[in-house]
Design a protein around this nucleic acid. Sequence first.
DNA 1: ATTTCTGCAAAATTTTTGCAAGAGG
DNA 2: CCTCTTGCAAAAATTTTGCAGAAAT
Lengths: 141, 141
Amino acid sequence: MEMIDKLVERFKEITRAKGLKVTPQRVAIYRELVSRYDHPSAEEIYEALKNKFAGISLATVYRTLTNLEKIGLAQKVATVNGIARFDGNVKPHSHFICTECGRVIDIDCKVEIDTKKLEDMNLCVEKCEFVCYGICDKCQH
Amino acid sequence: MEMIDKLVERFKEITRAKGLKVTPQRVAIYRELVSRYDHPSAEEIYEALKNKFAGISLATVYRTLTNLEKIGLAQKVATVNGIARFDGNVKPHSHFICTECGRVIDIDCKVEIDTKKLEDMNLCVEKCEFVCYGICDKCQH
DNA sequence: ATTTCTGCAAAATTTTTGCAAGAGG
DNA sequence: CCTCTTGCAAAAATTTTGCAGAAAT
């Protein structure tokens, strides 16, 4: 829990430094995002908070996640079903997605990229992600 | 062009084999998809065809792309902006996703995976995808 | 006190679906 | 012919936005 409190403190500092205001809604949304490792959608964060935080709105969740992206404290994760998912861990890492239960597991992979080819194509790479699809340990029988 | 004609013939065979009908719309949509390498969205395919093919509808493009996925002749690619993009190349390969415009570009990367770690985690990997995020050539200023 | 932020509802976007008319095998 | 498919428009689903009141600094 202490780790997450530190992240929240850092979030408050960065938010203020960017001229944005630290509101209870923003703190709750960021805390929820970094407390879980399943890369939640805006809807999922909203569902998790609306009980603990009476009156929070889905629009605020969307606006806050967009802000977190802008100030570098969250990233959208690529999805195939059109529903945006967010990751509070902005350090480069890889994902395993279970096609059975949908669980997303962080994995540690060595990836070697031929950046010269990408530079030749005039593509400015900011982040790389390796995604594996399959059946997770809990879903195997 | 001959390569694409061969793909279209294969598409016709598979379509009939699955009990589906070979319509001019389906042929045109599949041909458009495999003729380009920019992973077009349904809207982009529709825009490309509506001039050459009077009266084609966006709904048909969506339905056809869904069918192509079902019969294994196309794949939805992961995106970050909620707009579905399709790939007529179903062989495993890597993608660059532009975080600005959402464009998906094929890249050629050497990827080295440490599968032992995944096996240790009891994860059964079925498919892997390497994704780079950044700003594409068209979005740089 | 000033500026930003929130909640609500409405709008915008993207995708899906129901249905009658049309086309393929 | 019979079934599948299409086009249209309406419906769904997800995300964004305008605005007035509320809150943060």
